[in-house]
Design a protein around this nucleic acid. Structure first.
Lengths: 198, 198
DNA sequence: GATCACGTACCGACCAGTCGGTACGCACCT
DNA sequence: AGGTGCGTACCGACTGGTCGGTACGTGATC
């Protein structure tokens, strides 16, 4: 298997979808491969034809989620503009994609520690870059005097990320608030906290 | 086994401590009973003498953590005073106890879904009460005009709880910030967000 | 001598992963 | 048009090992 990934077959995606659903509901270890294939309507043979091990299901889930989030951040950063607007865009976008993919996020947050040492290092690096980018955004605005520097930028980022990561535990797609609405409320909150005291 | 709990023996506590440590590090399912007893320096016989099942280790961990948090909240609410001060006290206290018991919190947050239906209902009820109490605090202050009502009170609470629950993923006891410091930063943040615009 | 607090040996269930096979399409030759 | 060779996609019975839990023994204490 030479490094690259090809476009996944329908069977592959059904297996992944089943895995996400079950892992989110019951946890990785508590879900047997037999259950995954039953949910997907395929057999063990099919699963092991496409994936080398149960853990690889996790990697694939992580991969696609992180790729999407990183891409979105890059898009917003590249567009440039007012730091406050950009921060809002980042938060709203993050909440939206997290809401759209609650199960993936839930699996990721809960089962992160299962990553092997290499994958973990890679993830940490990516998260660090993300973190730093957002922190820079906050700091830039704080330095310009338009934001209050009362709360350190890294704490702000930690809080923002924490909220999003916890979202799967209480967000309900059929709840009264749309993801956009929620994202904006959270952005309101963060931006309000950053308002200068003056 | 008639409902009540008695003062735990030393062996019992060593088993629990070992379980917390291992569950936090590797997850509940990925930790075998054999590993727990090895870490605790006892045998399976001892463990099953005190606990009816592996899952009961989880219940005990949850129990003591929730009991402490509920007690603390009650203490603060009973003391009364200015809503803003009370909210700060709640947040600082929550962060402090969470920091003191990172492993327990990590286990709880990650493995919550393992609770049986009954226990889950019970927990939900307790969390709801907690949530409502804090929300009432925020709302009371918002109604009095001393806090901004821009962000709905329930979102505020969700954010605050989210931060605390995520804390185990990034808090390091040997880090530069003490729990008090962190708790106050988080409280600063929340209270700043609630400042009226005027 | 009965109860408590464990230790030791063991059991049955389950589970991730394997492996020998099948079905089928496609390219190439004749 | 038919045959042949081969690669891909899958099937499902089986296995080696692990794990939660139990049965029973034993020494100390009351």
């Amino acid at each position: 298997m030479p490094g690259g990934q090809r476009t996944p077959s329908a069977t592959q995606e059904r297996i992944l979808a089943a895995a996400v659903k079950l892992f989110a509901a019951k946890g990785f270890d508590a879900t047997s491969v037999a259950e995954v294939v039953a949910e997907a309507g395929v057999t063990k043979g099919a699963l092991y034809h496409y994936f080398t091990a149960k853990e690889e299901l996790l990697y694939q889930i992580y991969r696609s989620l992180l790729a999407e989030q990183t891409a979105q951040l890059a898009r917003i950063l590249d567009a440039g503009g007012d730091p406050a607007d950009m921060l809002r865009a980042v938060l709203v976008g993050l909440v939206r994609t997290t809401a759209e993919r609650v199960d993936e996020t839930a699996v990721f947050v809960r089962e992160m520690s299962r990553l092997g040492a290499d994958q973990m290092a890679q993830y940490r690096a990516e998260r660090r870059r993300y973190h730093e980018a957002v922190r820079a955004l906050v700091e830039r605005a704080q330095d310009s005097g338009r934001f209050s520097a009362r709360v350190p930028a890294d704490t702000v980022v930690l809080i923002a990320m924490g909220v999003v990561n916890q979202l799967p535990t209480w967000y309900r797609p059929d709840g009264p608030k749309t993801p956009e609405r929620l994202g904006n409320e959270i952005a309101d909150f963060v931006l309000a906290a950053l308002r200068p005291t003056s």
